[in-house]
Nucleic acid binder design. Sequence first.
DNA 1: TTGTCATCTGTCAGCCACTGCCATAAATTA
DNA 2: TAATTTATGGCAGTGGCTGACAGATGACAA
Lengths: 201, 201
Amino acid sequence: MGLRERKKQRTRLALIDAALDLFLGQGYEATTIDQIAASVDVSPRTFFRYFGSKEDVVLAMHADTQDILLAELADRPDTEAPFEALTQAMRITLAAVTEGDEAHRERLVKTMRLIGDNPLFTAGQMRLITDSEQRLVAEISRRRGVDDLRSHFVVAVFTAAVRVASEFCLPGEVRDPAVLAARLEETLAVAEKALCPGWDR
Amino acid sequence: MGLRERKKQRTRLALIDAALDLFLGQGYEATTIDQIAASVDVSPRTFFRYFGSKEDVVLAMHADTQDILLAELADRPDTEAPFEALTQAMRITLAAVTEGDEAHRERLVKTMRLIGDNPLFTAGQMRLITDSEQRLVAEISRRRGVDDLRSHFVVAVFTAAVRVASEFCLPGEVRDPAVLAARLEETLAVAEKALCPGWDR
DNA sequence: TTGTCATCTGTCAGCCACTGCCATAAATTA
DNA sequence: TAATTTATGGCAGTGGCTGACAGATGACAA
């Protein structure tokens, strides 16, 4: 990886860090792109070369996580049932994130605090989920050998569970990937009791 | 209802009609608030007194529909199981909308065409669903007598089904409430086979 | 009918997210 | 070192959205 590439990644992370800190410190709306750019010593124009919108920088970490999830799903053995593969991939993704780079984990915690406190971001989060959902459906369809309504349904139930788990991180609770993992287990326990064996074949 | 109130409703509907026609005719982005306001002979400032944002006018009809759904759910007998109550309320809501006022139905069809063609709006649609979801959860919790994780899960599975159904309106297909109703039945058939009896109690 | 009050509307000025364009600087490659 | 590619900064402009004030319009009582 060349110098250019490394420099870009550093700028990107610096922008994310600056933005998250400003958002948490003085509020999302009260923070301008100019402030974010200034605190990284970069022109405002450059900000928009890294992120499509002000909201995107908030969702950047979550978008990365979705990519990991998709990769982990692709790594699951084909013998595994669709829903099981999804949940296992999610568990591994959360674990990887929890045990990952300290700075990286901190960014995720800040992101979760921001999104959790501000209902403004639920829409953006939904957009992310919907986007990745289509990719998940493609992979599940490949595994099942058919691209039908059931593939969509299986993935929709999975994302429903993840969503419920993330909503169930009580307000005031320290929000981080580990807590989310715990809530996810509770939700999956309910889901597994509710669903007939073999429903996702 | 006084003259003032009627005038307001007329303005609101005129703005929705003008906006939908312009969006469908020349594209969403290419249409400015000034154009919408001008074609209703109203100041741009007034537009924002009726709708919080440019996107809101697109979602206005769907927001109204969500309100109907909630009212229908409240009307379901308490003896009905939670998921059954949700699906029945949805069926009635779709039927009411299909058989409703001609102009009203036309607005809905235009809205569905807009949202279906432009992935930009899926996020907004999700936001609407998520907002109403909280109200649905409250009602389901009241019926079940407990406000626990299961209430959230039941509602999440329901909205997942609705979402899958609406995604499954094939592109190119005439999009209207009747088609959505048909797709919903297919999806609910899959859901009912997948879920154990009594899972939502 | 007339006067008073509440509410709606238009106008104006302004903020800020976001974009296209072009010149410049920096990194990559030959 | 020279040539090519690519990232950045500056600038001007569009358009969504808001606050503040003044005038118009419907609601209501005397």
